[in-house]
Design a protein around this nucleic acid. Sequence first.
DNA 1: CAGCTCATGTGAACGACTTTTACATGAGCC
DNA 2: GGCTCATGTAAAAGTCGTTCACATGAGCTG
Lengths: 250, 250
Amino acid sequence: MSWRKEERRAERGYHHGNLKEALLQAALGLIAEKGAAGFTFADAARMAGVSAAAPYRHFRDRDELLSSIAQRGFEQFEARLTAAWDDGRPDTVTAFERVGRAYLAFAREEPAFYNAMFESGLPIDANPALQAASERAFNVIRAAAERLAALAPPGAPRPPAMMMALHIWSMAHGVASLFSRGDAARRKLPMSPDELLEAEVLIYLRGLGFPTDRSSSAKSAEPPPVPPEASSGSGVPPGGTPGGPWGKPK
Amino acid sequence: MSWRKEERRAERGYHHGNLKEALLQAALGLIAEKGAAGFTFADAARMAGVSAAAPYRHFRDRDELLSSIAQRGFEQFEARLTAAWDDGRPDTVTAFERVGRAYLAFAREEPAFYNAMFESGLPIDANPALQAASERAFNVIRAAAERLAALAPPGAPRPPAMMMALHIWSMAHGVASLFSRGDAARRKLPMSPDELLEAEVLIYLRGLGFPTDRSSSAKSAEPPPVPPEASSGSGVPPGGTPGGPWGKPK
DNA sequence: CAGCTCATGTGAACGACTTTTACATGAGCC
DNA sequence: GGCTCATGTAAAAGTCGTTCACATGAGCTG
């Protein structure tokens, strides 16, 4: 009937038991609340109920805590993008769009992670592990772009997948940074950030010669695994809105 | 033969004479060097040769100095975008491209301003003057988009200028944030940020139905078929490179 | 169980920063 | 010449990041 280690330690004697994790969680909350710049090492310690010196047993300094959070962020980011991509189902363009929305959703729903990853000003390429994690996340977009490029329409030249990936990334990051968070999010837009990005990507893909209408999707030589009956999934409809990527052309 | 005020004061007696300006300049240098997060009020004071309390005669607090810099940044930004736009000369698309490059050039050449404006985490919409300045800068892009939308090709529906402007802004900001500065700028790209953005915008415009080739400028409303000859061009020719917005279609 | 050891936490201390307060200086005006 | 007010200084309080010597106690070893 003896308690297991974690449970006993959680009752906080002299030794905290989970301090590292507790600090990470506390920091996550603080960053979400006040930004990575305003986040304070001492505050995290206080929130975990330990002295200001305790965190140094688990992190070399404040920056290492921040890096740890960014690292986790990139891992979760990668996971979400991978899930959204779902190996290109039901069709490549739809899945691609879903990745874009997942990007925005992550920026919106995980402001602390996003902040640590992209807005904290910490030198990503100084930390190999961090850089690798960010690389893995980007590779999801890259792989998706690869698949998209592979089914380039017959008439058009095949665009370099790497370039497409960088373009899509910059669009998603730009929209997320400018409109989907904190400051400028209040800027009154004619459409939601999700719609804005979706339209942007669709127009871009059309510019590359991809058919972006579900109706005209399965023409030439690519795998259309799914009949055109659109799943009425929740959230944003998977295709472009009827009438082109933007609402009312008139 | 008496010296004029400024000159006498510049010799620094008890009163500095230009402290406000000196602090702004010092801060600009410090931010360019160590980022807005690392910039320190005390350091700026030291650099100006005054005590740590002196700056409080000119700025309510550290944030107000930062806001002042961001404000100036937006003003210079607007000026540069306006100059780049040059009222749409010699033709709308060319001028539009130039605005994009001006955006990146500003981010690259004025890292301190750009940092204060977009990466310092200060609440832009909390300061009406700042918000207005940022609005004015954006309006340059908006006006350019308006002109572009006005000459929409006959076949295609006319895209909302506001949406176009937001799209272009997000592209420029995304490329600048991700690839054109500090951290991830080291990420090895297949092309320069300038080329990346140019291709992105050109593909986007083509997606809207705009002719993006100078040669076939006033034709019809479809993506022009591309001859397979690829230019291995260096530099960034102002139009789309012949052979499409990217280098080697192959 | 005694005792050892090492990971983990504490408290005190240092220097730097932000901001406030009381005081000093001197430029411009009568 | 003297007044006054903008602009500077020094000192102090409070916070942070960080280090160091020391305390605690969990888990092993016998």
